[in-house]
Amino acid sequence: MKVTLESSDGQVFTVDKEVAELSVIIKEMLVIEQANQDHPIPLLNVGAVELAKVIEYCEHHRNDPTIDDDEDYDSRKKPIEMDDWDKQFTIVNKEMMFELILAANSMQVKPLLHLGCRYAADIVKRMSPTEIRDLFQIDDDFTPEEQDKIEWEKQWTKL
């Protein structure tokens, strides 16, 4: 069975129902609006570029066992397996990945959300505050007194 999805900028995508159901939101919508399947499902927070990428991800992971429990994604307990395809998938610029995280969050595609968060966490891991500031183009807005305290805390993080 096919389902049509509509991105925020009006582009329509047709995908298999089981692929679309990786998104918790769509799955719930399909249950509620069973009669109304002719209309495309509007995804107001997801642009066409991101939606295409999300669908690409869902297509690849269509046969993965579903994990309902949020706890299972908890990084401390069980890191999700990242296969070669996933690694390839995450080779995009960080703006795109961050958009994908938001898209995955609003569509509730949990494996993708966790993949994205892991990607984001890997970016800032082992980075100095200055490097992070440069990367995200953030301004240093601490006063000199605050700076002292921050320096004190920071000295212990050197390995």
Partner: peptide, 19 residues
């Protein structure tokens, strides 16, 4: 979700980025 994947040192460094 993102910050919970970092270790203690990373968290402290991230605290030093901006307000």
């Amino acid at each position: 979700n993102i910050f919970s994947r970092l270790d203690g040192g990373d968290l402290i460094r991230c605290c030093a980025v901006c307000w």
